[in-house]
Amino acid sequence: MTRPNLEIHGVGTASGGSYNLIRVHGKATIDGDVVCARLEVHGVVTVLGDVQADHVHVHGQSEVTGRLVSTEVHLHGGLNVRGDCSAEAFRGDGVFQIDGLLNAEHIEVKIHGPSRAKEMGGQSIEIRGERRSPLGRWKKLRVDTVEGDDIRLESTQAKVVRGNRVFVGRACDVDHVEYRVDFQSTKGSLIQSEQHL
């Protein structure tokens, strides 16, 4: 059975279900859980439910009230997930708010505004901030715990960072760092305590 495509240009509402491609230019609300190969957003999308996809591209603003599971997430704009978000690769630049765990093999995001995740975990995690931004102190990622093998952080405010190799860069504020192999930090980052395991 081939799955249908769902294209919304303009303003529309659709029900959840199983699709091949979901493409939105404009503003759409999808009511229910969604399974699709590709979710492309140019505009604003709200999904009332879970999303399971192979590729998610957000150019604009997306909100998922459930959990988001995808092989790849490309972010160019804003992403808001109420549940957990998991992917093999979570990349891009913009703003995100994930109320649960962000779990990805590779996390690579440039932060352009206030972002939030409860927890982050994965193999490699790299968060970059904006250079010399006048509003830099508001453009931060707040996160409770970051756990990964290779961690590089900028513009991040974290309670605990645990990893094998940890680099805490500029504009960071970390309560506690635990590392196994290597730990470095730049001047101007605030680190309350560190511990070599």
Binding site: G121, S124, G148, R162, G163
Partner: peptide, 21 residues
Amino acid sequence: SKKALLDLTGISYGQLYRWKR
């Protein structure tokens, strides 16, 4: 604890999160 588990088994955070995913 997660920490003790990683020490005991020799696996990494990356592996643990991958398996969870």
